[in-house]
């Protein structure tokens, strides 16, 4: 209990030049978004201080965002909390894509089939669990979600199996 510092997996050492580049990019993205938001805000109409238009507040916020991001671009020295993008990014991309597909199918074909499919993909494909465990977990979990949301809580999820 008192051994507060549990072992936390150390991220691989990031070379300073890489970290600096990362920091610059990470600050440039909000900088660019801020500029776009500022332009959109101006188009909304800024109004005057006694009668602010819809665009005034978003403009103030996006200017603050641009300023903060600009300072960060200048202070791009590595801080030690940056992490390298490795080929593991592919796993993350697949996972995110599967979630998008899940949402896409959710109302189209009901929640049951996509739920089982997502679980199979994550358990077997990403997690490399055994087929047996994959099958059991996917089916039991889907049934449990059905019982919890549709039967017990009466939430109207799209579903194809009527009980």
């Amino acid at each position: 209990m008192t051994s507060a510092e549990a072992p936390v997996p150390e991220p691989a050492q990031v070379p300073p030049a890489y970290a600096r580049r990362l920091n610059v990019v990470a600050a440039l993205v909000p900088l660019a978004s801020g500029v776009v938001a500022a332009i959109m805000s101006v188009n909304l109409g800024i109004g005057t201080l006694p009668a602010p238009g819809p665009g005034m507040w978003p403009l103030i916020v996006s200017v603050a965002m641009v300023v903060a991001a600009a300072v960060l671009v200048l202070q791009s020295r590595p801080r030690g909390d940056e992490e390298r993008f490795t080929k593991d990014v592919v796993v993350v991309a697949i996972a995110a894509a599967s979630l998008v597909a899940y949402a896409f199918l959710f109302e189209l074909v009901g929640f049951e089939v996509p739920t089982v499919a997502l679980l199979v993909l994550w358990l077997k494909g990403l997690g490399r669990e055994s087929w047996r465990l994959t099958a059991v977990v996917s089916i039991v979990a889907t049934a449990a979600l059905y019982l919890l949301f549709i039967t017990a809580l009466g939430v109207s999820l799209p579903h194809i199996i009527a009980l």
């Binding site: 009901g110 049951e112 089939v113 549709i150 799209p158 194809i160 199996i161």
Partner: peptide, 11 residues
């Protein structure tokens, strides 16, 4: 599944 069953609930 989509062709065999109809989706209920949701929106």
């Amino acid at each position: 599944a989509a062709s065999a069953c109809s989706v209920q609930g949701g929106s």
